[in-house]
Amino acid sequence: MLTLKRLTAILFGLGLVIAFVPENTTKPYKLSAADMLTEVQFGTQMVSPDELADWLINKDPSIQLIDIRTPKEYEQFHLEGALNIPLSKILDDEWVDYVNQGIKMNIFYSNGTTLSQEAWMLTRQLGYENNYVLQGGLNYWTETILNPSAPSLFSADDEIAKYEFRKGASQYFGGGGVKSSTSQAKSKASKPKIKRKKKKKAPQGGC
């Protein structure tokens, strides 16, 4: 019983201190220019079309696509499930709950990457997290996912595997670039089998 009393005294004391100290005293609300430069150089905000296609096919509930282009462009074509937040409105109160949140993974996209990168820079500078940019934008999406081009015969195995994945994804998203190979007709009806990649996160543990 003595040890329990001693334990109580120690834990209670430590708990009391931690309850009253302000948390995260050193956490900067805004990122410094040097921090931004590091992030930009490493490209940590980039999401490749292949990753995105994989998540969309698996209906990952943590993904929120955000279309940064004008409403007119959005109406003409947009990815399924995307929200339209034009760049000029990204800082409006109306959208702040969408771009500054800790639940979903926002993926900004525009035709290229200029607009989406600008949107990311603005929100990142404010210290918002969970915002990402679709690498290459819709143009690159069309080129790689909707109309993938076949690698040469002498490509490395992973190049060919990537192409196989893109072919499957293209069918899923209704792209036009899939021709040839006899097995295609059969597999058209069923959903393409695509292995789910793990997102870049720390390892999990348990009992």
Binding site: T8, L11, F12, G15, A19, P22, E23, G102, I103
Partner: peptide, 25 residues
């Protein structure tokens, strides 16, 4: 999402930790 109990309850992490310690004791 990746939520924490302290965010849901709207209290600081330290205060929540204190309550967890009380509960454990």
């Amino acid at each position: 999402g990746n939520i924490k109990l302290s965010d849901v309850l709207g209290i600081s992490q330290g205060t929540l930790a204190f309550f967890v310690i009380i509960a454990a004791l």
